[in-house]
Write a protein that binds this DNA or RNA. Structure first.
Lengths: 103, 103
DNA sequence: GAGCAGGTTCGACGTTTGTCGAACATGAGT
DNA sequence: ACTCATGTTCGACAAACGTCGAACCTGCTC
């Protein structure tokens, strides 16, 4: 089974922003950026696994994440380079690298 | 009458992203960035004025725009500096300054 | 092959969102 | 005062969204 993962450039900006405009999904992105690849089940969002699956699907179809299948597990990672190429500075701006060091 | 305009720092990131994650609103932001201050009525979005008013309210309450009242008109502008301070590079990333020169 | 563990898909639900017309408010000009 | 122009607010409505449990699929492992 193959997973649908669109070209980052083919996704409308508003779709990317909508995907990021949700607390659960932004939390996922934040953890992915910190930890790199993560197995689906390792996200503890306080949500049912059906809901988690839904959010991961939204992120994937927005071109934000890549999913690698291995056995019955799915490993998710950020498509950092592609996103950076298409929207330079977006992830840094949203996730606030400099937030901790501010004044 | 005073308009509610929150401190940019007090608005959750997801609220900002959600506000930007709509075609009509992103179009407004894009025009504001190009033209500076604009009167509400000058946005031709192909929407009823009630809808336009709604979108402008969403942007304002997300801390993205500033509204100046003058007579019966309202002049809207981007809060560029404040947004830039809070989310460095966000607007550029989203509105794609380098998009035209990329290839 | 039976059972299990990791994820997805399928309704179903309540809520939020985008949209509109109509009614309203307000300030300017005659 | 009446009118006009500019916007906002108020229902109302349909569509989209977030959430969940239950059913399902798919590889392992005994």
């Amino acid at each position: 089974m193959e997973l649908y993962e669109p070209d980052v450039a083919a996704v409308p900006v508003t779709a990317v922003l909508s995907a990021l405009g949700d607390d659960a999904r932004l939390a996922i992105v934040r953890e992915l950026r910190r930890d790199g690849e993560r197995c689906c089940g390792t996200f503890d969002l306080g949500l049912a696994k059906a809901t988690r699956s839904h959010h991961l699907k939204v992120l994937r179809e927005a071109g934000i994440t890549h999913t690698r299948i291995e056995g019955t597990s799915r490993f998710v990672s950020l498509r950092r380079d592609e996103i950076e190429r298409r929207y330079p500075g977006l992830l840094d701006a949203v996730l606030g690298v400099k937030q901790a060091t501010a004044h």
